[in-house]
Design a protein around this nucleic acid. Sequence first.
DNA 1: TGACTTATGGAATGGTTAGTCCGGAATTTG
DNA 2: CAAATTCCGGACTAACCATTCCATAAGTCA
Lengths: 198, 198
Amino acid sequence: MARTGRPREFDRESAVRQAMNLFWAKGFESTSLSDLKSTLGGLSSASFYAAFGSKKALYEECLAEYMGTCGELVATLRDESLSAREALRAMLWRSIEIQTSRDSPLGCMAVLSGIVCDDDNADVAELARNARKVNRDAIADCIARGVANGELADDGSAEAFTLTLDSFLKGLAVQSRDGISREALLRSADQLLSILDR
Amino acid sequence: MARTGRPREFDRESAVRQAMNLFWAKGFESTSLSDLKSTLGGLSSASFYAAFGSKKALYEECLAEYMGTCGELVATLRDESLSAREALRAMLWRSIEIQTSRDSPLGCMAVLSGIVCDDDNADVAELARNARKVNRDAIADCIARGVANGELADDGSAEAFTLTLDSFLKGLAVQSRDGISREALLRSADQLLSILDR
DNA sequence: TGACTTATGGAATGGTTAGTCCGGAATTTG
DNA sequence: CAAATTCCGGACTAACCATTCCATAAGTCA
């Protein structure tokens, strides 16, 4: 059943992707409605609000889009065809590749776009925080899997290693923004994994 | 020679410290002039601009204050009475203590307050970036010192280790904001240093 | 005392913010 | 064809933004 009424003049999906890149690059608060409207093809306020509801609602959509594409690490971590160590390494490499890619903003949207906020945007900060927690939990699960199948030492260091990896991962967002090269970060990631060699 | 003219009615030094806490907690852009004026004792616009020049100038002062006090890690790293490893460990512990302290905002001001910015606040972002670089260079120097005196292996991994530590350190800012406990982060930091035990 | 200097309260600046509203245009359905 | 539905351009709102201005107050110096 086709939709009745006048058809939308822009592609909503690609608009969300463009908005995602804007929020990713500038953060939630520094991205203004007029930024968004002009980037998404010069649409009017009426069109914007009819299509997306509000700036916050669009941000939420963009963050979900990000976590389902560029920021997607969970699938790698859960890939049972890889050993835990291979999965962790693949996750780090994938993340570094995306964070340092020139085809998208530097760094990680979930880290950069919603840590520091005005009080009345606390809900935006919480969305980003939840997104970060999803990744942290997936890292913990991956390590637990390695411990369970005997691949990793069962010496009580699993929680610490989760945080070590996760902190490093989040630091990458800043390093990428600061212009540290992909190659240097990759070497650093491999060195970090050598913790498992003891 | 005493200053002439009507004396200022507030303590400029303590005002800078209070402003530092505000910028630290909320970032540069989310901290508004009215936030600042009311927090610094309800002073007027005239008094604010007479004392500090502009919002950006005050931010610069606050960042310098931060780097000279709470964010001060360079002195620890250069402490020649400590071995390189001891210095690195002391630096990490000090940083975690401050970033997770309840007596000041969570996380690191140099990381949180100036990564994501509007285009016309690019100079603010650069101030914060320079502050971060100071710490990174100090870490590199400390590791170089350890290599030079034979304490650390001279196997070409120094640059990677600098980045590994520095990325972890910056990730701490996010973890602290996300409510990760001090104790867990300290365990994680010690695990990270075990890279040196190979 | 009077000249000078600096700080203060408060009003006013021009610009931007997110969001609303309305009249008209474009489409589907009957 | 007419009715119903949806979208669009653009004017509009009310709040907030950093900053400036001015008359006045409170000091020092000679």
